[in-house]
Design a protein around this nucleic acid. Sequence first.
DNA 1: CGCCACTTTGAGTAGTGTCAATGCTGGTGG
DNA 2: CCACCAGCATTGACACTACTCAAAGTGGCG
Lengths: 259, 259
Amino acid sequence: MSSCDCELNACVLCEARLYPGLSSELVCRIRNLLIRETYSPHQTMFWEGDTADFLFALKAGQVKLTTSLPDGRQQILRLAIAGQLLGFESLSGRKYSYTAEALTEAHVCKINRRDLFEVIQQNPAVSVRVIEALSQELEQAEMTIRDLGLKSSTERVASFLLSLMPGCDGPKKTMSLLLSRREMAEMLGLTEETVSRVMADFARREIIENGKGCLRILNPGWLRAHSGIANGLAIVGSWIILHAATLDAFRIWATDFFA
Amino acid sequence: MSSCDCELNACVLCEARLYPGLSSELVCRIRNLLIRETYSPHQTMFWEGDTADFLFALKAGQVKLTTSLPDGRQQILRLAIAGQLLGFESLSGRKYSYTAEALTEAHVCKINRRDLFEVIQQNPAVSVRVIEALSQELEQAEMTIRDLGLKSSTERVASFLLSLMPGCDGPKKTMSLLLSRREMAEMLGLTEETVSRVMADFARREIIENGKGCLRILNPGWLRAHSGIANGLAIVGSWIILHAATLDAFRIWATDFFA
DNA sequence: CGCCACTTTGAGTAGTGTCAATGCTGGTGG
DNA sequence: CCACCAGCATTGACACTACTCAAAGTGGCG
């Protein structure tokens, strides 16, 4: 595993644990099919509509994926982060369905269609990994559909801000906001002005505090309560889940109803 | 291939061409891992939040996939049609991220997690097929995101109606509309009343003609022109494409500009 | 026949989009 | 060094889309 010139460990396609039972020479041979590239901020990795020759694995950095309507209206599909794969269209030789633009410096490795096919055919473990990555992105996309279909502007901005926080509700520390108001708007299906108004409103209520390119969440609880995901009463599949705080109100309603 | 009791050909997981080079006995063994089921209209195949034990392949019929916000607002993610796979969450043993409800009588076969894993590990061709299915659904989901983020109510209804037509712009023949106004609204991120108004408007302008549960598109051209996908000028990636009709207007603008 | 679910339509309004003006900041060129 | 400019953000006034609430029409079914 150390006899060749491949040095990458952060890439989903490169990780040794993907190739269980393979000799280290073989692993290195696979690794050598990968092309390393670095993109600087604002640089475009590929354009929507270009023929999809490569599958990209993002090792570090953030990438913005956008698509457009013919008249120029633009939508950000999602922000890709380290560990994700871009350009699955390459597998079936279609065209990229979105434009990928680096937001930060971005380190990727890419693999061309033919090589990818070979690797997948020969290494079931890789296929499984790819399938899992794809299915998680699909699930994520479906959550976005739900949000765009159902949520108000306030809820959209609130859940967007929460999505920037690293999972856990850690201490209210400053984090970087790579997107401009316009880009946030393009991501949330709103206008620049609406986003600006909502953000300004949040700042006035001391829910957030925003500097240039950075942001501090002062009251994550408020955001959660107004992000449309936690309302005291949850309907999940065939289950109705009541938050303790809601229960009293429900009891009153119920006694009234059954009286 | 004919010596066992498997009789299915319409299912992506069952098709013999997926298993090139396998003996017919082996193909039959795989086929025997599949469980056939039939659902009647309005029957629920699985609920959002249930543990995902099975991957479903839809052989015939249409299925509605919905997800909800905790307060009950509901969003239709998409309509699944014959040939598609549902419930990829089963692969990683997660929970279903949506509820699947049959719109018509639906024939499926399902396979449990353990068996699925085995088939995938042993048959690269199956993996590739699954990856392609997934990546197409992801692309479809991304188009939905774009539409919900950017389009007006008229554009949403127009493109929805077009999506019901079988690709080609055939003769204006009657087709079935399985969704109620409420369901169309839940799919398009609108309200029942808005959808009703737009549809009534289309009918008054003789763009469509609607009976109960069916629909005839009289003027597909108008719909295309107002679906946000064809405006004479297209910006695709780094390319600017002008429709001939737009070219004159552009020339005028350009001469003016460079004067 | 009445009931029910679904659809259509109207009136009024809340929430966003549109347009325009202002201020701020960082970069550029004289 | 400063003047200038372009881009970004904020804010206000206003318009308009789509939502809300309400009422009435339609068709199927027991």
